[in-house]
Design a protein around this nucleic acid. Structure first.
Length: 570
RNA sequence: CGGGGCGUGGCGCAGCUUGGUAGCGCGUCUGAUUUGGGAUCAGAAGGCCGCAGGUUCAAAUCCUGUCGCCCCGACCA
């Protein structure tokens, strides 16, 4: 490809709209342009990267027995009403009407469509298992699209759906996908971790997320270095260790704490450490007000709490309502004498002589003890895990890190097959619902994640498997015939050898070409300049290397091929 | 949805307080001189100042409304 003909509008300055590294670089290097919030055009370089990601994904999906299809983006409301998700999905679904005023949605996901499709034409155990997948745009009207491709409203996704005759079959399909996903992310040369994901909503089913490690990741994960355990922070099980030294229960006291509202205030005012405080959070669980109690320095995990309560809606109560019911505003709340059902975090059940609000403005209790001073409605794991917690598998201390969720695999069971009546006849002629799984990879997000993980101050550093081009040839002076001749003949040679090559034939100064080559992240750069050329040599430089190496003209292509081969092994 | 910020040539910004009809840097085009890490000089093109209404002799600037974009998201009890 000639750089003079390639559409890659690079920018010198960071567009003001981009805050995050991958967003900035993809814009600056001319990979993407925004159409509207969360919706992007992919320019030629991005297209090449996406195609490579897709082809790696395809290869593994096919190898695992998947068959590619293309499902409709425009989906009739009836299907969604049948599954019950027309209402449940809420504002996140793009909805539209046709000329007859019939309701449609732009597909945010494809369980309804594919289950209906399979139901219509698969009726026998003989035709199962069946693994169907597609790669295409998904539409989700996110509350807050952000970070460029990281969370878009239109994005490219690979989604595969498995249909099996029973749970054992699903296990097999699931593990095939699990293995395929590992091969994919290894093949993409990304640093990632597999973590356990929430299984609460559907109940007892397995689910894993594939997280690319990156500072700008939206999710926090905890993981164990001693064993394989890893989990999304909000999903990680908090493991309760045996309580240590028994502490004697002290007399409860009420203390005047004027103006002290926060945990930190109390610490400053009365030197009560956070580990000796609890906080009381009041929530609406559907209609009912309930209290959640966690250690002062912990975060309540709303997902866990919701699962414990088994309610549909959970949101924080407003201060006015709380004051009316409990007699005190935020900051002076506590479980002692609380007129609401209170749910205590596991960890709190081991605390002794702690401090909490007295349900009277500007008063706190100290030396409060569970059981003696109040009785909770439940004791459960309802806080977020943090680094330093014990691994629930092997008890080693957990570490934490941020990650970008690029893949998610899920055992669905019969949720959709029952709703959509996707049944089959088993060996005994009995009708049973198919057992399903779904498996997604964010293709466009993966591209952003790769940039997030692999870039320096000069620009993107593409991992070899997904680089838009492998080599860029830079003649230092495009007006110099000798250089250009050498450049063109190398270019032709590389093309013959099947190397993906850009030749920077633009009439620009060397500096501009170097800057652009670095910015767009091509792994190898060949520089053809007057000095080395005199000795029939060119410079070959890795994007990541500081200095080039000199290579004689007649062996450049073999040297380049060797270098690429070595790089692909790293 | 709530909070904050921003909309001025392709990009980054100034001007707005104190109204007088738009400016800087980069980019683009032409020519010349240059050519190893974002050249120099000379010339040029390009802007309904997001949109709509209002105030005024006069609005980028003041007022009202509206649309769009970006960031943050109870972390405190």
């Amino acid at each position: 490809m000639k750089a003079s003909e390639l559409f890659f509008p690079t920018l010198r300055e960071v567009p003001s709209e981009a805050e995050v590294l991958s967003h900035q670089l993809l814009l600056r290097a001319g990979f993407i342009r925004k159409a509207t919030a969360g919706v992007y055009s992919y320019l030629p370089l991005a297209n090449r990267v996406l195609k490579k990601i897709m082809s790696i994904v395809r290869e593994e999906m096919d190898r695992a027995g998947g068959q590619e299809v293309i499902l409709p983006i425009v989906q009739p409301a009836e299907l969604w009403k049948k599954s019950g998700r027309w209402e449940v999905y809420g504002d996140e679904m793009f909805r539209l009407k046709d000329r007859h005023n019939r309701d449609f949605a732009l597909g945010p996901t494809h369980e309804e469509i594919i289950t209906t499709l399979v139901d219509a034409d698969v009726h026998s155990y003989r035709h199962l298992p069946l693994l169907l997948y597609q790669i295409q745009n998904k539409y989700r009207d996110e509350i807050r699209p952000r970070f460029g491709l990281m969370r878009g409203r239109e994005f490219i996704m690979k989604d595969l759906y498995s249909f099996d005759i029973d749970e054992e079959g699903l296990d097999i399909s699931y593990h095939k996908m699990y293995a395929a996903y590992n091969r994919i992310f290894q093949g993409l040369k990304l640093q990632y971790r597999v973590v356990e994901a929430d299984s609460g909503a559907i109940g007892g089913n397995e689910s894993h997320e594939f997280m690319v490690l990156a500072e700008n990741g939206e999710a926090e994960i905890v993981y164990c270095e001693n064993c394989d355990y890893g989990a999304n922070t909000e999903k990680a099980v908090c493991f309760l260790e045996e309580s240590k030294a028994e502490e004697e229960q002290l007399e409860r006291e009420k203390v005047h704490t004027p103006g002290q509202r926060t945990i930190q205030d109390l610490l400053d005012y009365m030197s009560i450490p956070k580990e000796k405080q609890i906080k009381t959070l009041i929530y609406y669980a559907d209609e009912e007000l309930v209290a959640a109690i966690v250690r002062g320095d912990r975060e309540l995990n709303e997902i866990k709490f919701k699962n414990v309560l088994g309610c549909n809606q959970l949101f924080m109560a407003d201060e006015a309502a709380v004051k009316q019911l409990c007699g005190a505003g935020f900051g002076s709340l506590g479980p002692v004498g609380m007129p609401l059902k209170s749910y205590v975090d596991l960890e709190v059940s081991q605390m002794k002589n702690f401090a909490c609000g007295a349900n009277e403005d500007d008063y706190h209790f100290i030396n409060v003890n569970l059981g003696r001073d109040f009785t909770p409605a439940g004791i459960n794991d309802i806080r977020n895990a943090v680094a330093g917690d014990s691994c629930p598998v092997c008890s080693a201390p957990l570490y934490s890190m941020r990650g970008i969720e690029v893949g998610h695999i899920f055992k669905l069971g019969t949720k959709y097959s029952e709703a959509m009546e996707a049944n089959f006849l088993d060996q005994k002629g009995k009708e049973r619902p198919m057992v399903m799984g779904c498996y997604g990879i964010g293709i466009s997000r993966t591209m952003a994640a790769a940039v997030e993980q692999s870039a320096d101050e000069n620009g993107i550093v593409w991992p070899l498997p997904i680089t838009p081009f492998e080599v860029i040839i830079v003649p230092v002076n495009s007006k110099n015939e000798e250089q250009m001749q050498a450049a063109w003949s190398l270019y032709e040679e590389f093309k013959q050898e099947g190397l993906e090559t850009i030749i920077d034939d633009r009439d620009e100064r060397a500096g501009v070409k170097f800057k652009d080559a670095d910015l767009i992240g091509i792994p190898l750069r060949i520089t053809i300049g007057p000095r080395s050329l005199q000795e029939k040599q060119v410079e070959v430089k890795k994007r990541t290397a500081k200095d080039p190496e000199l290579v004689p003209l007649d062996v450049v292509s073999s040297r380049v091929k060797l270098m690429l081969k070595e790089m692909s092994k790293q």
